[in-house]
């Protein structure tokens, strides 16, 4: 069960991404971070803190739950449903440059759902995608704008991002087989 990113590496990576954000957007004017629940939200909050340290400015940060936009809902007539959690976007996304944040980019289906959900909140000026790990195997034409680490994987492997806020420690682990 190899650890592919440890706490230091994750910290340095997020700092680097924060600098890339400032560079590419020439500051943080009109930016807002929206994290995909659950771990994308924690990563978004960490980026907001780093952006504040770099620029002195607050970047509004929200949380998006994409469950009700998933493309695999209601595929069976009965059975368990994914748990719905609250979406909290306490600002208007109209004309903002939205930085969408998730932990792992895999099939691209979560991002598709997140884009649909975001558009229901308004008309952003643009949406840029930030992921901590890109593990490949896309099923939809989705590409990240900021990638923490490109991690070539086998389909049967799973990538687990563990964060202090939810899991008590920071690390990215590659597992053989089993659901992530």
């Amino acid at each position: 069960m190899p650890v592919v990113m440890d706490a230091d590496r994750i910290g340095r990576t997020l700092t680097r991404i924060a600098h890339e954000i400032v560079e590419r957007n020439k500051g943080v004017e009109a930016l807002a971070l929206v994290g995909v629940r659950t771990r994308g939200v924690h990563i978004a909050r960490r980026l907001a803190r780093t952006l504040k340290e770099i620029t002195g400015d607050d970047v509004p940060t929200g949380a998006l739950d994409i469950t009700l936009y998933r493309d695999d809902l209601m595929r069976h007539t009965v059975g368990p449903q994914p748990l719905v959690r609250s979406t909290e976007i306490p600002f208007s996304i109209d004309n903002r440059k939205i930085l969408l944040v998730d932990d792992v980019l895999y099939t691209g289906r979560t991002v598709r759902a997140a884009l649909d959900a975001l558009i229901d909140f308004g008309r952003p000026a643009s949406i840029q995608l930030i992921v901590l790990v890109d593990r490949g195997h896309r099923e939809l034409p989705v590409k990240a704008d900021y990638v923490g680490k490109n991690l070539p994987t086998q389909l049967e492997e799973s990538v687990q991002v563990r964060l202090q806020e939810t899991d008590g420690e920071d690390e990215v682990v590659l597992r053989e087989g089993g659901a992530a």
């Binding site: 009700l68 998933r70 493309d71 695999d72 809902l73 209601m74 595929r75 069976h76 007539t77 009965v78 059975g79 368990p80 449903q81 994914p82 719905v84 998730d102 932990d103 792992v104 980019l105 895999y106 099939t107 289906r109 979560t110 799973s158 659901a179 992530a180």
Partner: peptide
């Protein structure tokens, strides 16, 4: 809405990151 959602059907149980 919660009741309708919970009774409306089931999803695939797989990772869709």
């Amino acid at each position: 809405m919660a009741v309708l959602y919970l009774l409306a059907g089931g999803a695939d149980h797989e990772e869709t990151t």
